[in-house]
Design a protein around this nucleic acid. Structure first.
Lengths: 161, 161
DNA sequence: CGATAATGTCTTGCGTGCAATCTAATTGCC
DNA sequence: GGCAATTAGATTGCACGCAAGACATTATCG
């Protein structure tokens, strides 16, 4: 109450939780992480670690910077994460000889073979869901990501809309 | 290699990052949080704290359990978060006299008036984006959330009604 | 060639998220 | 009433995620 704003009749409260696009994304991400947890736990992986493995299984070796570009994460997140994975024997980290600033991440044999156990993960997670509409949803969210990434301070500073 | 099942010819590698629905959601959530950060920082709010305020501005007071049901979070997350917000003078926490197990969260005057400064946040965040398709996307993700919530072990679905 | 800027990673500090465990209060059941 | 089961929060321990700063290496420019 005591809203001193101008009410145009069609104006809706912009602060209603159900009007935010950000909240369903936030909730879905948390819920998904919770569902992935037990499944990935059997592989001794966390959800972000699983994503790193997905990238490395596609292409390998890669620098930390390249991993971050793909996953939209920076070294502040990746460095300790990769160290834990190195400790788990999944990968090794070494300075690039051609450019000592870079750190190259390489899968160990153990990291490569883990892929076999991970093959059933997508199927397990999708269990019971009809993929109807999922493809379209994935594309929509992906479009959103590409838009958001352009506005990210980490990539560029252009504020021109 | 790896003949993992019946190949219908259209079988693709299920572990490709771009085939996962979870990853765009994860990336979008991270990117959004990064974009909200500076805007909410002017209100001395983090993004999850902002969501709590959205819920409380809609209805107030509320128990911690009710907040968690709305935001899909549990007390392990909410208790320290709410304590910080209490320390910031935005709300107060008190045991329910009728049921001493519950903790009732009530906005302070400061918490209520903060709403005026928050009114421009959605508009600021949406700056430059055409809302075209956003409504549909929000509904799609919301459907996904409701499906995921049913499968959640924690589903504190105290469906009072 | 040397100063300087840019780049890539590491480190620090803080705030989430979540599983697991704990405690206190209430409910159920007899 | 008495006591086990349930419920609501709090606590603990761990792993992100990010901003900001530190650091070493490389590129750039005079």
């Amino acid at each position: 109450m005591s809203d001193a704003g101008l009410t145009l009749g069609l104006e809706e409260d912009p602060l209603l939780l159900d009007r935010q696009i950000c909240f369903p994304l936030y909730a879905a991400t948390n819920l998904l992480g919770r569902l992935y947890g037990p499944v990935l736990g059997k592989l001794n992986l966390t959800y972000p670690q699983y994503l790193v493995m997905l990238v490395l299984w596609e292409q390998q070796p890669q620098t930390i910077g390249a991993l971050g570009a793909r996953l939209y994460l920076d070294s502040g997140t990746l460095t300790p994460l990769l160290k834990r994975m190195e400790g788990a024997g999944l990968l090794s980290r070494a300075r690039d000889q051609n450019d000592e600033r870079r750190v190259v991440v390489t899968l160990t044999k153990r990291g490569k073979t883990l892929r076999n156990q991970a093959l059933h993960v997508p199927e397990t997670m999708a269990n019971g869901y009809n993929a109807e509409g999922v493809d379209a949803l994935r594309e929509s969210v992906r479009d959103l990501v590409s838009i958001l990434a352009q506005h990210s301070t980490r990539s560029r500073g252009s504020k021109t809309a």
